[in-house]
């Protein structure tokens, strides 16, 4: 028993700021085995560490995804960003930051030269090798998972807050946003649900289905996504299926074509309720497709005015 304690103490000295997590793990494992006295000793060590071995606040952050860059700015960590991708165009200040490559392929040399103390990486669209290589080069990398609904977006936002020591600010923002979501969902809860088709690009016709935050946006805004039952998250959708399901509202995001041309394409089908009642709307592409907490809520409020114009 004593032997183990000694090992533990030596490890305490070596493992830097990961110590707290490490200790918690050991405490849980040993709790049932060792006596309460030892447990106390661990607790003392734990407290000691929380007091003196604070996690260093990252001062040089590299963000490798547009949505992450935006969230860092939201948290007020914009000044600590030293590198972004070429796709990071929001907010305006992000364009001034040093570019470390594209979303798919960060330039590792350039990344190393910036000497970041934290690299934030989005899991979606990346391969594991890039992360492994960055870690092998001694960079601290945090991989953020893909978000399928607003809860996940919010959790991730708080996670980014934790990583940049701005947890309280993150939670504060989230609390406000939750209220706004609640307001929208309370208003739409008891209303009739119009059928909605959400168009993500028209050539070929794409939409968002089950397990996407866009789908959630539609249902929270009091609509019913006609593609909600498809198992593919962003499927190519048969135009015939749209006609058959006859949506009351069509919401599209602009993917290249002009707004008038997009609306004109639907005007070919005067049979559709959405066309008859002139309820085809363009949503802000960036806000609708870039999953940050603020974008989500703003897009949701826009969706709500499209789907339930009677609400003011």
């Amino acid at each position: 028993m004593r032997m183990e304690t000694i090992i533990l103490v030596t490890q305490v000295k070596t493992c830097g700021y990961n110590l707290n997590n490490f200790l918690i793990k050991y405490m849980i494992i040993f709790k049932n085995i060792i006596s309460k006295r030892f447990s106390c000793l661990f607790s003392i060590l734990f407290l000691y560490n929380s007091a003196y071995c604070q996690i260093p606040v990252p001062k040089k952050i590299v963000s490798l995804a547009p949505a992450i860059t935006e969230q860092l700015f939201l948290l007020g960590a914009g000044d600590d960003i030293v590198g972004v991708t070429t796709y990071c165009e929001f907010p305006e200040e992000a364009k001034q930051k040093e570019k470390v490559g594209t979303y798919l392929e960060p330039n590792l040399e350039k990344l190393l030269r910036l000497k970041p103390d934290l690299v934030l990486f989005a899991k979606e669209g990346h391969n594991k090798e890039t992360v492994d290589r960055m870690e092998a080069l001694g960079l601290k990398v945090a991989v953020l998972a893909q978000c399928n609904n607003y809860e996940e977006i919010f959790t991730q936002f708080i996670e980014i807050g934790k990583l940049t020591s701005r947890e309280n600010k993150a939670k504060e923002i989230i609390t406000k946003l939750r209220k706004r979501i609640k307001t929208v969902s309370n208003k739409t809860k008891n209303l009739k649900k119009p059928k909605v088709f959400f168009q993500l690009g028209s050539n070929p016709l794409m939409t968002a289905a089950k397990n996407t935050f866009n789908n959630e946006m539609i249902s929270l805004a009091g609509g019913e996504n006609i593609a909600r039952n498809s198992n593919i998250r962003y499927p190519r959708y048969n135009p015939e299926a749209v006609i058959r399901q006859n949506p009351d509202v069509i919401i599209f995001v602009n993917m290249g074509d002009t707004t008038e041309a997009e609306i004109e394409k639907w005007k070919k089908y005067p049979e559709l309720e959405a066309v008859k009642n002139n309820r085809i709307f363009m949503a802000d592409t960036h806000k609708t497709c870039s999953p940050t907490p603020v974008n989500f809520v703003e897009a949701l409020e826009a969706f709500c005015t499209f789907i339930h114009p009677e609400l003011k």
């Binding site: 070429t86 796709y87 594209t102 798919l104 690009g201 050539n203 070929p204 016709l205 135009p239 290249g256």
Partner: peptide, 22 residues
């Protein structure tokens, strides 16, 4: 592809796979 935005690449890739619907 290596310098353009991902959403634009996506459109082109879908086109390259062949599409008779549009």
């Amino acid at each position: 592809f290596s310098i353009a935005r991902t959403d634009k690449i996506h459109t082109t890739l879908l086109w390259l796979m062949g599409d008779l619907s549009g």
